[in-house]
C-alpha cells in the first residue's frame, strides 16, 4: 500500500492539473464490489442476464466508478477531501469489464471564503476510447489559506 505524493496546495492556481489515476475495470472487482456494497443488481454481476439487455453485457456499478473519482481527489488532497469535499457528477456512459478508465481533474476556480480557500475543480472519468463515463465538479476547502 502507499500513497503517491499529494498535490502541493500552496502552488495551486486556476488551470492546475490534478494527478490523474488509471483503473482497470474487471468483472472480479465488480463482483467484489457487489458483495461489499450489497448491490446485487444482475446487470452488474449476471453475465447471461446482462447479455440479454440493451446494454449487451455487464457494467460496473456507477458508485464503483464514482469511488474512483473520490480516490483521485483523496490522492490529490488527502484528508481535507474527507472533511470538506463536494462532488457533483453525472453518469454519462457505463464502464464495462475490460475498460481502462482514466480519472482526471483541473482546478477551475479558487475563491476566498469565510471557511478558507475554496478550490473548485472539473473532474472527468473517461474510458480508453475517450468516451466520458462520469463528468462533473468537485471542490474542497483549504482552511487557513
Amino acid at each position: 500500500m502507499g500513497t503517491k505524493k499529494r498535490l502541493d496546495v500552496s502552488s495551486l492556481q486556476e488551470g492546475t492539473t490534478l494527478y490523474e489515476m488509471k483503473k482497470e475495470v474487471v468483472q472480479e472487482n465488480i463482483n467484489l464490489y457487489a458483495e461489499a456494497s450489497k448491490d446485487f443488481n444482475p446487470i452488474h454481476i449476471n453475465e447471461e442476464f446482462a447479455r440479454n439487455t440493451p446494454l449487451g453485457g455487464t457494467i460496473a456499478h456507477g458508485m464503483l466508478i464514482l469511488a474512483y473519482v473520490s480516490q483521485m481527489m483523496t490522492a490529490n488532497f488527502g484528508q481535507v477531501w474527507l472533511t470538506s469535499g463536494k462532488l457533483n457528477t453525472r453518469f454519462k456512459a457505463p464502464a464495462r469489464p475490460g475498460d481502462t478508465v482514466t480519472i482526471s481533474g483541473t482546478v477551475k476556480k479558487l475563491e476566498t471564503t469565510e471557511e478558507g480557500t475554496s478550490v473548485k475543480c472539473n473532474v472527468l472519468c473517461q474510458n480508453q476510447s475517450g468516451e466520458t463515463v462520469i463528468s462533473g465538479d468537485a471542490s474542497i476547502v483549504l482552511s487557513g489559506c
Binding site: 472487482n29 461489499a36 456494497s37 474527507l82
Partner: peptide
C-alpha cells in the same frame, strides 16, 4: 476491508486507521 479491496483503494489514509471512504458510506 471488502470495500477497500473491491475498489482497489490503496491510499495510506486508510492503512490501519479505520477511516471509511465517504463513497463507501454513501453506497451503504
Amino acid at each position: 476491508a471488502a470495500y477497500l479491496k473491491s475498489t482497489g483503494e490503496l491510499d495510506s489514509l486508510y492503512e490501519g486507521t479505520g477511516i471509511v471512504p465517504p463513497t463507501a458510506v454513501a453506497a451503504w
